[in-house]
Nucleic acid binder design. Structure first.
Lengths: 211, 211
DNA sequence: TTTTATTGATTGATCAGTCAATCAAAAATA
DNA sequence: TATTTTTGATTGACTGATCAATCAATAAAA
């Protein structure tokens, strides 16, 4: 087995394993042994490549964020109008991968960790800013700046809120219903903030099933 | 010091201490020693009264929930119209006590814990249901049932989302601005769902400062 | 004397992190 | 090509620290 060039392979395997173990367990209180076992290597190797558990965890968040950014960039590229781009941003955040129970559990665990780990907090702040600014850019094409800022903040909060509520798994709201709720928010506030124009909303879909 | 009737005193002191220690530390990974020290007793006494750390933690959530319910009941009693009651429910959730960084950190920690502890999950589900049903009851007085349900879900999500975003402490949205965002959501969706009536909203306040 | 409150000391388990040793591929050398 | 040296990959065994939980003992009411 001892071939050369294993480092990137092992690093990826360990990061992926960490994400899954954390997701399954629903907490960062997982052991290096658990993670290493899932990755099929010894705990010592995990330490060899990452130096510490904290570092492995941080790389894991980075990987989660990277994935989300990739998806967002791709979704934005496909959309044409500002309104369509808003829908794209919303849809990406509720994409199946992101909405899987294990992924949600992992996000939640990282949010909690951010209270203690400066680096974790820094990374999550980047996520929050990015979401806000993605929304803001297109809202500004449709509304005055101050209204755009308020609505961006509201939409971001709604997305995060739907996400966290999902984590309780009681009467879970489906993906489509979550998207519909966020779209309704946007449509309603776009209408109320610029009552002059008739809304040219693309995906109204107020009737997404709720349960 | 060994007087009789200490039990309730100690229990309360320990639960309060637990909440503060968890809030400060931003995680449930606090030791019984930390909690006991803050409460001014020995770790052994904490075990004596609560049996286990998990039990103490659960009592702590119970206490948090009890407080929130007390506040909600009081706020609802003061409000007269359905619309005013909706505002009251919103306001309670952003009340200063609930919005203190340590309290938010504690809530977040409990959400994460709910992934593992069945009892914790059960309690948080109760909270989520209560919020939803408080909103729903008054919305149904203003709207058809299906619209009311959607809006209740959306408002609950927005409240939770504003809450969780607060936990990152970057560009924190103030209490008043959070309330304003939620009110805006309600006003806009009430208007769009029943465009016939003119909105008799009490506190529109679309201009709460954002930073 | 019985009951309640309280603690210091201890135990047993769990883990992150370390280290020296092994093994095989690759590179250097003959 | 054959042999030796170096290097990267990998692990088992160990250490030190931390903690939840237990328990026997003490002290003061009742």
């Amino acid at each position: 087995m001892p071939k050369v060039g294993m480092e990137p392979v092992r690093r990826k395997a360990l990061v992926d394993a960490a994400l899954r173990v954390i997701g399954d367990h629903g907490s960062l209180a997982v052991t290096m042994s658990d993670i290493a076992r899932k990755a099929g290597v010894s705990p010592a190797l995990a330490h060899h490549y990452f130096g510490s558990k904290e570092q492995l965890l941080i790389e894991t968040i980075r990987s989660l964020l990277r994935q989300l950014r990739r998806d967002t960039v791709a979704a934005l590229k496909a959309a044409q109008t500002p309104r369509a781009r808003l829908s794209a941003v919303i849809r990406v955040n509720f994409h199946a991968d992101q909405f899987a129970p294990e992924t949600i559990a992992a996000w939640l665990a990282f949010y909690a960790e951010a209270q203690r780990s400066e680096e974790t907090r820094r990374l999550l702040v980047i996520y929050a800013r990015r979401l806000r600014s993605n929304l803001l850019a297109d809202l500004k094409a449709l509304l005055p700046a101050d209204a755009a800022e308020r609505i961006a903040e509201g939409a971001a909060a709604m997305i995060d809120g739907l996400y966290i509520r999902q984590s309780l798994k009681s009467a879970p709201i489906g993906i489509e219903a979550s998207i519909a709720l966020t779209e309704d928010y946007l449509n309603a506030l776009l209408a109320s903030a610029s009552p002059s124009r008739e809304d040219g909303a693309t995906t109204s879909n107020s009737q997404g099933q709720m349960t």
